[in-house]
């Protein structure tokens, strides 16, 4: 059984989307525990890529390809994991998305992949999302963290509006709100009273771990 986990890990590291999907199907066909396949295969692979990225040994295409491979595998396994009653949700749930008016998502997708690798359950709601959509998803899944991405100086203000929206609904203290994206900074996070900011995807993972523990 550990052999297929090793193969999955390699497929993710190589960024081989097709192979990752095939191996996930094999997990199902051979009645292997999908949760273990995720933890010991897919997540191990993305973790390793994340570490080599941090060390300057892997590059953007490596990380993006690995993230896609992991996504392809998880898509195959998710239905049966849900049937089994889910994996362990203890690490935390995060709603992730790009703010209203902004349609850039590559950075956000990498953050999502590394958060998943770190064991978080990530609900990626996509691009150009209104504040109410972030909140609705967070309420629906019982998330602890709302993480927002903005790539343009002209759209980062929507991060502030999201926080104001939560305040308006008297739900601000219920969630930790994180901000990220090219033009954002710690100063910006402080100014709009966000709970945290991270410059890189791996720093975002550390930040989420710190906020939830």
């Amino acid at each position: 059984m550990s052999e297929i986990f090793e193969e999955i890990k390699e497929a993710v590291i190589d960024g081989d989307e097709d192979l990752a999907g095939e191996l996930a199907q094999k997990v199902l066909d051979e009645n292997i525990n999908p949760v273990e396949a995720v933890q010991q295969g897919f997540i191990k692979g993305i973790e390793e890529i994340g570490n080599s990225w941090k060390a300057g040994e892997a590059f953007l295409p490596d990380v993006m390809m690995a993230a896609d491979a992991m996504k392809a595998g998880l898509a195959v396994l998710e239905p049966s994991i849900a049937e089994l009653g889910g994996g362990d949700d203890d690490t935390g749930k995060i709603v992730l998305g790009t703010v209203e008016g902004d349609i850039h998502d590559i950075g956000k997708n990498i953050v999502g992949a590394l958060l998943t690798a770190a064991g978080f359950k990530v609900y990626d709601i996509g691009i150009d999302q209104k504040a109410e959509n972030f909140l609705a998803k967070a309420e629906e899944v019982g998330a602890q963290i709302i993480a927002t991405s903005a790539l343009l100086t002209t759209t980062m203000n929507a991060q502030k509006e999201l926080i104001e929206y939560l305040e308006e609904k008297n739900l601000r203290s219920k969630y930790k709100v994180l901000v990220g994206g090219g033009p954002t900074s710690q100063t910006w996070a402080d100014e709009i009273k966000a709970d945290g900011w991270a410059e890189t995807a791996d720093e975002a993972v550390e930040l989420c771990k710190k906020l939830i523990s």
């Binding site: 295409p61 993006m64 896609d68 349609i103 850039h104 998502d105 997708n109 691009i127």
Partner: peptide, 17 residues
């Protein structure tokens, strides 16, 4: 419009290689 489409991300990764 290319930004924010799944097609773009895939082509962008490929384009970087």
């Amino acid at each position: 419009e290319l930004a924010g489409t799944a097609d773009f991300q895939a082509a962008f990764i490929k384009g970087m290689l």
